[in-house]
Amino acid sequence: MSSFVIEASGLSKSFGQTHALAGVDLQVRTGEAIAIMGASGSGKTTLLHCLAGITRPDAGTVDFQSGAGRVEVTSLSERERSRLRREAYGFVFQQGLLIPELTAVENVALALMLNGMPRARAEEYGRGWLAALGLAGMEDRRIGQLSGGQAQRVAIARAQVTGASVVFADEPTGALDSATSAEVMQALLDSTTGQGRTLVVVTHDADVAGRCSRIVDMRDGRIVGERVPGVAA
């Protein structure tokens, strides 16, 4: 069995005249935290979307290796990719993008309810994850009643509660101050690589990238370098 959880080869994607990805190859190892860095417009978010099955590339393939076997994500239908994202992946976005009218625990439990778990059990799991992320006692607060860092922890709990083997995070600390950013990144790492899961992070922040096990640099839709944090290129 391959030690790569995700393998992408020859990914290309254009939006009109803009070439967002121009032949990207990338392997993501099981249990690693990989940071994708680059200037705005370098194609890093498009790459994350292709790896996660949100966007279908114009060319190239993405393979996902799970306990159930190997799946070619790029050949799946829209519906199958949606199911894959729901069941096997977790997502953390810059603004959290939680549902404002739901409470913290309902936001987390929703991910499990979408997979058919009864609500009471889903909320029980949700409370457990919130407590593990330092949010015990805040389960019934609405999102507007939480700070930016707390809301982002709720988003991490939502990404993790399904037992996702890979978590994709797009600028997860982009809207936070540096101290909160460090705390949230630590929580994200603890709940992913700390549990043997895989983390793929898109970030501008060198400090965030510095805490990952590997950094890939992108420019003009291509990977132009790869390094290990703390080791001179």
């Binding site: 996660a52 519906r79 949606s82 994202r85 729901r86 069941e87 997502f91 976005f93 993008l97 549902i99």
Partner: peptide, 11 residues
């Protein structure tokens, strides 16, 4: 928000 829910896999 709808876009993000779609990304999460909500039908």
């Amino acid at each position: 928000l709808y876009r993000s829910l779609d990304m999460l896999g909500m039908p």
